[in-house]
Design a protein around this nucleic acid. Structure first.
Lengths: 343, 343
DNA sequence: CTCCAAATTATTAACCTTAATGTAACACTG
DNA sequence: CAGTGTTACATTAAGGTTAATAATTTGGAG
């Protein structure tokens, strides 16, 4: 017959079919009081028959809320964010919220667009995992009036909510573990500290662990690498040539650690016999690795759950500009098989 | 002053401020014709000053489209889907679409809710990565009138669009590679074939490769495991005890392969010296592994891009029930370091 | 000066839902 | 039996945008 695309039924259609007013139908379907029981049942029956389901657009427009949050993060294919996203999406769904995903690829410009999109779509709140160098965007977000929580990274200069890992503690734990196992020349393969609070804090922890052990911090043992740029192997092998006395590597993240291990493997350097490695993030909580990596559990699930909880509180609360939560999740060292005791 | 949450300005506000009608303001901001140049500029100027941005809810309600797609998939923390999601989100964004993410955790019930949510939110289309055992949901989706494309898995009994990997080819390539390297007793650690087209097809490829080589298929060498249930190690080590003549494993996915390798490692079995392993998916395209895994590249990016392209075509097209694309992306064997030549 | 066409702007209605307000019928109270 | 309260529904308005239609102004031709 070619009767074309079937339009979804509206309250009006049900009203016509049942002979009640639109308002009565609406109230019946929402189980509101002041409706005769048999009326309600009849209307609900017809709605079911017609395959009615509420039009969230119209509803949101009227109610002024969308039951939707946006998650703006730098890289979903990074297991850290992927796993966080799972938690956030699940928790949001359980509370009746949908999740709009906006990936920024660590780009400030993309991030700005992402924020604009989120605002246009009238999301009720935003989980904001800042890209590097996005202070301006964070400020813009503050001015928007839409509740948001900084996730994973944060800006000290902005007084806003955040849920981040205790990167300094984690950096300390990783480094102290290596020192305890007898390592003295520990290469830090860090992220880009200039624009990344996590990288700065992990480095601070690295320094603090040295100081606590009475060891000097050797500036040339701190290097910055970028997974996206793919320069991990180059920097690592270069350093090992320059400083053959290096016995251990503290990697900014498990991804960096894995990349480092792959390059060491290729060059015939054994882990942990020749070089010990500690990573960061504990992605093994979501992927099995052939060799368990010694790493720092940053408690992704906990961090994600805390961020979501904070955001929902802000959404429910009367004043979205009030800071509700500035949380550092406590990290924990997870021993694996990539650190050699050389005492 | 406590002047409360600042309301976002609307067309009405701009109209009042400039003295023009709402319609004129709307047309000015959308760069429509039939407006005096100076009027347009003046209005746009004021809009900028007031920080106006379009209310997508109202716009969508009026226009009947949301510029939003939903991605309904079983598990975002599975790198396969995570990487696909990156591609889909990026492509969608480039075409002006936002992405709502709905994770189903392989649950048919969650999936049903996800579909309902997507329909309520009036998404323009759905990338649908079916959970296992979700044939009914797929049928429901067909009846909804909303364009969708099955992704990664599909149902033969439903005549609808899909973009999936050529699982049979991939299964063949993996198995043939092992046979070529001299392996005769190849354990297939498959997914749950009863509810998963990929698992069935990969197994068909496994069988075909045996037949092509004139080898018998040994039914006891085909086992089904579940990453979520965590029974990979148990099944694998059990089989190796029963059949010490097994020299190779073809794993359903890289995740299964990694899990298998971890258990082999723990039990002192060396890869590839004692046991060869081939995986599936090529997650190394997004994560470095210390030892390169021999695997089958299922072309995630290509598959994701194809699915999105197909969906956008359906959205743009006049008849969303018309099947536009039923595509199998061609797989490719990627040699790594986990297969031993025992010829 | 009149009339027509073109250019510009305004008015109205519609998308679908929800909340506030309005109305009618009926039972009960004193 | 007038007045009050309750029950069950209907009507109206509003949320912000856009498209169709209507109205006004301007310029030019005759």
């Amino acid at each position: 017959m070619g009767n074309g695309p079937v339009q979804r039924p509206t309250l009006k259609d049900i009203a016509q079919k049942t002979g009640y007013s639109i308002n009565t139908v609406s109230r019946a379907l929402r189980n509101m009081p002041d409706i005769a029981v048999e009326t309600r049942e009849r209307i609900r029956e017809v709605a079911r028959e017609m395959g009615y389901h509420n039009n969230a657009l119209a509803s949101s427009l009227r109610l002024g809320r969308t039951n939707t949050i946006a998650v703006i993060i730098p890289d979903i294919s990074n297991l850290f964010y992927a796993f966080a996203l799972v938690e956030i999406e699940r928790g949001a769904r359980e509370q009746g919220y949908s999740t709009i995903l906006l990936n920024t690829s660590e780009s400030g410009a993309f991030e700005q667009n992402a924020i604009k999109t989120a605002l246009q779509k009238n999301v009720d709140g935003i989980i904001f995992g800042p890209a590097q160098q996005s202070l301006d965007n964070t400020r813009m977000l503050m001015g928007s009036g839409t509740p948001f929580v900084q996730f994973a990274r944060h800006f000290e200069s902005v007084n806003a909510d955040f849920c981040v890992g205790d990167d300094k503690l984690g950096g300390y734990q990783a480094t102290a573990h290596l020192i305890e196992k007898g390592h003295r020349n520990i290469l830090l393969l860090n992220g880009l500290a200039a624009h990344n609070s996590s990288a700065r804090d992990r480095q601070a922890g690295y320094r603090a662990a040295h100081e606590a052990a009475g060891l000097p911090v050797q500036p040339d043992l701190v290097r910055e690498v970028s997974i996206l740029a793919g320069d991990v192997g180059q920097q690592l092998m270069g350093m090992l040539r320059q400083r053959p006395d290096i016995t251990a590597v503290f990697a900014y993240s498990d991804l960096v650690a894995l990349s480092a291990m792959a390059h060491l493997q290729q060059n015939g350097v054994r882990v942990p016999q020749d070089i010990s490695i500690v990573g960061f993030d504990y992605i093994q909580s979501c992927i099995n690795l052939p060799v368990p990596l010694t790493t720092v559990d940053i408690k992704i699930r906990e961090m994600a759950a805390a961020a979501l909880k904070c955001l929902l509180e802000k959404i429910a609360g009367p004043d979205s500009s009030k800071v509700v939560c500035q949380k550092f999740t406590r990290t924990e060292l997870v021993p694996g098989a990539t650190v050699q005791d050389i005492n």
